[in-house]
């Protein structure tokens, strides 16, 4: 065999290995969650809040955690969006002062890598200082901090990849700045922006450590931003920690619900960006 053929073979082997590793671990996780969670899952779990004795195996559901997680991640994603879009635009506009933009990007990348428990601890200290108690608001703020670097860097990449020639093509036809922004720039960037938003949402909804101290946990659905709120990751955590097998199975059911939400969000974002991205210039 020639050297190039051997090399080719090795590369192919590694590709196959990494491919099967990724697919198998996804499959394994899904199978575990489904096998263990599906039997415990029923309609009551999805539409009821925990009744007395729920954590001992009596009736009730995890509606508090489902709604709580959607509130937390939804609110955090909105909040993060309010900040990250301007930051990303700012990074492009001021990219001429390159060292500055690079510094901001580096900070965002570091923030991205910080473990969420550190965000949680930071948020907790902040809330103590402000006299806030564990609440929906606290959880939203900390999750927003967690999501911010993911979203901003995602958008930054999208904006950076926006070809200047494309804007010029529109200007050359006599389009105004507004028309160019709405019909051309936005159309080109929207799929990427939506992907960045949903990616951040997915990260936010799945995180347990950052909401542990900041959002608290409750069996009720909060009616105010200042009330504590439950979340799916913590529902998994607490139920798995009980000594009762029924309750542990419900933890898997909660994990299944969370996994399905994340699956829907990521497949949805794929579908959406493929649909909106039909005409974008790659």
């Amino acid at each position: 065999m020639k050297k190039s053929q051997i090399e080719e073979g090795i590369v192919k082997g590694f590709m196959l290995l990494s491919f099967s590793l990724v697919v198998c671990s996804l499959g394994f996780i899904l199978v575990t969650v489904i096998v263990k969670g599906l039997p415990a899952l029923n309609l009551d779990m999805l539409i009821q809040t925990p009744k007395g004795g729920y954590y001992l195996g009596k009736e009730g559901g995890i509606l508090n955690a489902i709604v709580g997680s959607l509130y937390l991640a939804g609110g955090a994603t909105l909040l993060a969006l309010v900040f990250s879009l301007p930051i990303a635009l700012f990074l492009k506009t001021y990219s001429r002062r390159k060292w500055w933009a690079d510094y901001v990007r580096l900070s965002l990348d570091i923030l991205w890598g910080i473990p969420s428990i550190v965000y949680g601890a930071f948020g907790f200290t902040l809330m103590l200082a402000l006299g806030l108690r564990a609440s929906l608001l606290g959880g939203i703020i900390v999750l927003a901090l967690l999501e911010l670097p993911i979203m901003t860097r995602g958008m930054d990449e999208v904006i950076r990849r926006m070809p200047i020639d494309m804007e010029e093509a529109a200007y050359a036809l006599g389009a105004t700045r507004f028309e160019t922004a709405m019909h051309v720039v936005l159309r080109q960037m929207l799929p990427g922006i939506v992907t960045a938003i949903l990616l951040a949402f997915g990260r936010g909804i799945g995180d347990a450590a950052s909401v542990l101290f900041t959002a608290g946990y409750t069996d009720r659905i909060p009616n105010s931003l200042l009330r504590p709120v439950a979340s799916l990751p913590l529902a998994v955590f607490f139920q798995l920690g009980t000594p009762f097998p029924e309750v542990q199975n419900r933890a898997y059911a909660a994990a299944l619900v969370l996994t399905v939400i994340i699956l829907v969000v990521s497949l949805g974002s794929r579908w959406l960006s493929a649909r909106m991205g039909r005409y974008t210039i790659k």
């Binding site: 070809p163 020639d165 494309m166 093509a169 529109a170 050359a172 389009a175 051309v184 080109q188 005409y279």
Partner: peptide, 21 residues
């Protein structure tokens, strides 16, 4: 300026389609 650009149409050195059909 948009009137000027409509009056003097530029065909750029590198063609660049708009993100449309």
């Amino acid at each position: 300026v948009t009137e000027v650009r409509k009056k003097a149409g530029l065909l750029a050195q590198h063609p660049f389609p708009l993100p449309m059909s």
